[in-house]
Design a protein around this nucleic acid. Structure first.
Lengths: 209, 209
DNA sequence: TGTACATCAGTGAACGCGCGTTCACTGATGTAC
DNA sequence: TGTACATCAGTGAACGCGCGTTCACTGATGTAC
């Protein structure tokens, strides 16, 4: 009765699924994309992966377990993308940082499910310790990048590297989330908006842009 | 059997509640504060207001109706607070704008329930038309303020007033949401962070801060 | 190579739960005369 | 001032639903000998 032909994205080989964990992640991501991290249900994800509702419990303790797994994968991918944009400081720091900001926006737009899970899980159950770690790691990367900016701290006042990082992060996050929610119907390109804003901000810090 | 003594915040006078609509709003705000806009339930709000689960339907079409009502009230209060901070341009524009940014953060911190409903309802049901209107009105206010900045547009490149407004909004929104979610455990004051960032940004635009 | 068996990764039925919403109803309120 | 009545704003019981999770189970897999 059961379909034994392998489907795209899944790899069922008989009674055992083969790669159920990955299939569940894919299903969850799809559902989160459609209904948000709060609208997603474990039963539905199982249905999506053509598996009984009890099956996910072989791989996750909880509904929340799957959610946290996705958030963590999201953070890892996120960090990788930012890292790539930074390109190990090969470019001059200012335009490298603008590339990072662009990568931030691009991630939020292209990986809406990940992004929504990473930043929209404030109220959902207990938050994983690894979730927090992954988030901090991403921020640490940003701090490292900012540290490489040719800033004269004697002149710019009390701005620490950490503060500057947070400010750039806030700017990026704000741009990303505002556009993710289509808050304004003005057709402004978020990418262009953020690049420009980071440029202005860095100029305000006294950097030649 | 029923408690007839008026409770703080409620005004029950016999069989009829007296001010159920307001009581439901208060209950919902409390619940949203605890569990977020997605965790809130109409039945629980009714219980909170000491009323049967069917009673809310006298005042709202839907669970979503109450949610949208709260979002709208939130936007109105929000606009009022920003307006007050702006103080009709009595102060010099730059510090007035910084006051607005501060008011933004203050609102997000003090009115978490409102803020979460206003900006965290992306995936919940159909979005009210008035919801969108209220949001646009708040943005329009910001644009009006930015228009009063003594900017030399001949020199600053292609930045339109609208773009600048969006950028300041993104910065504020980012700072507010990052701290609302306690994303970083660094003990940086969000208010100070944003004020400083707006200052740097305006300086980058060529304004004397 | 063949067989016995432990382990793994699923099944499917069932549970209790809380929710959103509807329904016929009823007590309270206010108004016309 | 008193009475009849329409309207308003609640009640409470019930519904169907989907969910998270547990349970005893079973088919597939892989390993020891």
């Amino acid at each position: 009765m059961r379909d034994r032909s392998p489907e795209p994205g899944f790899c069922r080989r008989g009674y055992h699924h083969g790669n159920l964990k990955e299939a569940l992640r894919a299903a969850a991501r799809q559902l989160i994309l459609e209904k948000g991290p709060h609208g997603f249900s474990l039963v539905e994800a199982a249905r999506f992966a053509k598996v009984s509702p009890a099956a996910p419990y072989r791989h996750y303790k909880n509904r929340n377990g799957l959610l946290m797994d996705i958030a963590q994968q999201g953070f890892n991918l996120f960090a990788k993308r930012l890292q790539q944009a930074w390109a190990n400081g090969t470019l001059d720091p200012v335009s490298a940082l603008q590339r990072v900001a662009e990568a931030y926006i691009a991630f939020a737009r292209q990986e809406k499910a990940y992004y929504a899970t990473m930043f929209g899980t404030a109220y959902s159950g207990e938050i994983n310790e690894q979730f927090r770690e992954s988030g901090n790691y991403a921020f640490q990367m940003l701090t490292d990048m900012v540290a490489q900016l040719p800033l004269d701290f004697s002149g710019t006042g009390p701005n620490s590297i950490e503060e500057i990082s947070m400010q750039i992060w806030a700017l990026s996050h704000g741009a990303a989330t505002l556009f993710a929610q289509n808050v304004s119907e003005k057709n402004i390109d978020p990418l262009e908006l953020l690049t420009s804003a980071v440029g202005i901000y860095l100029k305000g810090l006294g950097l030649k842009v």
